[in-house]
Write a protein that binds this DNA or RNA. Structure first.
Length: 544
RNA sequence: GUGCCCGUAGCUCAGUUGGAUAGAGCAUCAGCCUUCUAAGCUGAGGGUCGUUGGUUCGAGUCCAACCGGGCACACCA
């Protein structure tokens, strides 16, 4: 709609206000009585032209060269809004386009030829994914899908954090658990990993190797634990249908000498200095609050250094966009990394960081507590067991990333009308069922895409087409904002409008061409529901 | 104390780059199935958009201060 209006409005505005530059804004009014699209251009121009907004609006409307087949009406309203109403034919044609595009409907070529790297999950291989990880896991997967819909080639990456203290801790914890399994009186260090999965790994080691590892090196235990944990993490991701193209090992940064190199580079560019036996990054000269240590006096880097090094690596690979997804608890590290990259001469503007707020799990009204240390954590696997993969993915994407998320496990589990996942899926299954029924009545489903759509004039039919028509611009907007929660809300709207249409407009058994036209509308709705669900990774069932 | 996020209906939350009478789901109440899936539909009630100022034709949205909640502020990752 906007693409149609933009040029004809620009033309008129060009004659009325030649100095005006910039895009004319159109928006969908909240109140449908105000038309399909509305612009405030007359109000914006009123001031500099020193004319009353309504008079100016009148001038613009009179000069508008519009096709009456497309535009049904243009009205001036309120303080000077210009409201535009599109014709039935416009929407009927739009539905025809949806049907002929089929699966491709909603895909955009805006970012065709561009490549983005999205890195997410990246949980340390020190244990299983816990339920709280779920938000990041599902959010990243949806954003990756969304970006593909806009034309990006998306590289999905997992940063495998297998260096440093935590891994030594994991190694030691595994070793202790192993020795405990062999009956030795030895206790886990205070800061060790108390999770049950480490005991599981120890048991496996006993089964596999008996007591032959009693004198094994700690690094052997690290290798075993790392592999076992990573396998579990991957299994959990697989249950959600999520895969990564690249698994980037942190320790390759050390093995390749990249860490040494970047320290040298930072020193050489006078961005780092030595003090008290440690190497400090001059963050205070990069617009940050204070300098920070990047290499401890023990000679070991802090997390900042590999983070900077890793991002440098990603930027060097030539992506047009590098996306990180972090929980709010990692927020502190980001400005430092970006500042350092900028100081090293990289375009840090290419790095987009999506930060999501934390999650509270509820069972009804009761908060489910979990803590990694105590070992009584609620695992993502358990959450999937409880509510299923579809509800997991839908619920984690239901809220804006900046909002704290309350995940009601009882609600997600419930297979009822209260549960928004089933509401959306039910609409899809309902359409599938109707189409099956239609087929039994000897109606040719393949021919529906060629149906005569001019008989679609019922208000609920037009409303449904209008919603379906919004899909492509919704995808773009949602992708550019990294905000998949709009998809959830949109799917709910599509489902709701389909149910209204279903209620008012019988399909099968209507005289032709109404029967075919309505079934075609149902088919298009099914298509959009399935596409939207696929972005979230949620299945669109053929029956329920 | 400093930084980031949040404060909208009883509850959980939407609210496009500032727009017209602030929305949805759940919960509550009242209706609708001999006909394509009632896991559905229709209607009703429910609000000082945390508070106070400011910016302007116009503020839930932008700015400032304050109040309340979350997260983060290591030579931990």
């Amino acid at each position: 709609m906007e693409e149609y209006l933009q040029p004809i409005f620009s033309e008129v505005v060009g004659t009325v206000a030649p100095e005006f530059s910039g895009a004319i804004q159109f928006e969908t009014p909240q109140n449908p009585d105000h038309g399909d699209l509305s612009t405030n251009i007359a109000m914006l121009l009123a001031k500099e032209l020193k004319k009353a907004p309504r008079i100016l609006a009148n001038e613009i409307v009179e000069k508008l060269r519009k096709d009456s087949e497309v535009i049904e009406g243009v009205e001036i309203a309120g303080p000077g809004f210009i409201n535009i109403r599109f014709s039935r034919k416009y929407f009927q044609d739009a539905l025809g386009a949806i049907l002929s595009l089929g699966n491709a409907y909603g895909h955009s070529r805006k970012y065709e030829g561009m490549m983005t790297n999205l890195e997410w999950v990246s949980a340390n291989p020190t244990g299983n994914l816990h339920a709280g990880h779920g938000r990041q896991v599902c959010l990243g997967a949806a954003i990756a899908n969304l970006l593909e819909w806009t034309g990006y080639k998306v590289i999905r990456e997992y940063y495998f954090n297998n260096a440093g203290n935590q891994m030594r801790n994991l190694a030691r914890s595994t070793q202790v658990r192993y020795l405990q399994e062999l009956g030795q009186e030895i206790s886990l260090p205070e800061e060790g990993y108390h999770g049950a999965e480490i005991i599981g790994i120890a048991k496996e080691l006993v089964l596999k190797f008996g007591d032959s590892l009693q004198n094994a090196e700690q690094s052997d235990f690290q290798k075993f634990a790392e592999e076992a944990n990573f396998l579990r993490i991957k299994n959990t991701l697989t249950r959600l249908g999520i895969h990564h193209d690249i698994y980037f090992n942190e320790n390759t940064l050390y093995e390749s000498g990249a860490i040494e190199k970047i320290i040298a580079e930072l020193k050489e560019k006078d961005l780092a200095y030595e003090k008290d036996g440690a190497v400090w990054l001059k963050l205070s000269e990069m617009g940050q609050e204070q300098d920070r240590v990047i290499v401890k006096s023990t000679g070991e880097p802090t997390y900042r250094l590999p983070d900077i090094c890793y991002h440098k690596d990603k930027l060097s690979r030539g992506y047009d966009l590098v996306i990180d997804i972090f929980g709010a608890d990692h927020i502190a590290t980001i400005p430092d990394v970006l500042a350092a990259l900028k100081a090293l001469g990289f375009d840090s503007g290419k790095v987009k960081v999506v930060i999501h707020q934390m999650v509270t799990f509820l069972s009804g009204t009761e908060v489910i507590k979990f803590s990694k240390r105590s070992g009584s954590n609620y695992l993502l696997d358990e959450l999937i067991d409880d509510v299923g993969a579809d509800a997991t993915k839908f619920f984690f994407n239901m809220r804006a990333v900046g909002s704290h998320l309350e995940f009601d496990v009882e609600l997600a589990k419930e297979q009822s009308e209260k549960n928004p996942v089933y509401y959306v899926q039910y609409a899809h299954a309902r359409i599938a069922s109707i189409l099956r029924f239609a087929q039994q009545q000897e109606i040719n489903i393949q021919m529906l895409t060629k149906a005569d759509l001019t008989v679609l004039v019922h208000p609920e039919e037009i409303s449904l087409i209008k919603i379906l028509h919004r899909f492509p611009s919704l995808i773009l907007q949602t992708a550019e904002a990294f905000a998949p929660h709009h998809i959830c809300e949109y799917l709910r709207q599509v489902a709701a409008q389909f149910h209204k249409f279903y209620h008012d407009c019988r399909m099968v058994g209507q005289p032709e061409p109404v029967q075919s036209a309505r079934l075609a509308l149902a088919l298009a709705t099914k298509q959009v529901l399935a596409s939207g669900c696929s972005i979230l990774g949620v299945t669109a069932p053929e029956s329920m």
